[in-house]
Amino acid sequence: MTVVFRMEAPYRGAYELHRLSFGSGSPSVAIVAGMHGYELTGLHAVNMLATALRVSRPKGTVHLLPLVNTFGADENQKRWPFDDQDINHAFPGDPAGTAVQRIAHALLEATHADVCVDVHSGAPHVRELPHVRVPMGGEEVELGRKMGLPVVWRRPGDRLDATGLVGAWRQAGHKAVVIEGGRGGTLDTQHSELIARGLGALLGHLHILPAMPGPGVLADVTHSEVETHRAPFGGFFVPEVKVGQRVQAGHLLGYLQAPIGGDRLGELRAERPGVVMTLRAYPMVHASELLVRVAGIPQ
């Protein structure tokens, strides 16, 4: 384990950015998690991968940075707690700038690799089925598919974290994708395992590790093939499905009821066959809020 960046911190021990490196030479892969401090499912997944890499002989280089925002993780915070700044909004960073700009700069410098992966979770009020977000075309689509995560979501470039770490990687000429899975502030070990297996499959595809299958793609979709259900009005949302569940057209996804009294106000039903990719976890909802995403599966 290497400390690639260190910065003194008032009232506590210094901040350190840790990198675990395995193997040497090409191809190279960098995997980052925990840039948002409360996103712990990815942290656990990357540590599972590290455990596997310790007993293997990688043909190439793998850099793992399991937890960037250690201070945020200590306090169950998304952002850097000192000045409440999002590290993922500080790229490309500045070695002489503010704390988050320095971290962003050091992180970018420590992760130059042929293929880069940034692992995130959903916000604390939603749960995400592990999926990979890739551009609409190019080599990254194939890399994403080879992970075998349950959903491959092809998105326009400007929706792929254009101003964050992934955007900075792509600006630097690296192939970069985002994995999202689980829920902020909690640990979902099954989702961590899916993500770890997906990352292992990627390393197998790049011949860094022996070939291994990913969990299996259930849906390979563009934005228009993702069915998004928003709350038509505020209320108390009761889900009737779980993330990863396959549904048919007409399947009851959940319903809204009055928070006081429990009168049923409306129902959400799937419009087409698919797999539940995103599910609201915190039940008090405002009008227009995202409740369910269903990734379409062709019949």
């Binding site: 003194e8 911190a9 008032p10 000192f82 000045d83 700038g97 704390a99 700009q101 320095r102």
Partner: peptide, 8 residues
């Protein structure tokens, strides 16, 4: 008053 290196 609390500052990190680089704080304005």
């Amino acid at each position: 008053p609390v500052v990190f290196p680089g704080s304005m």
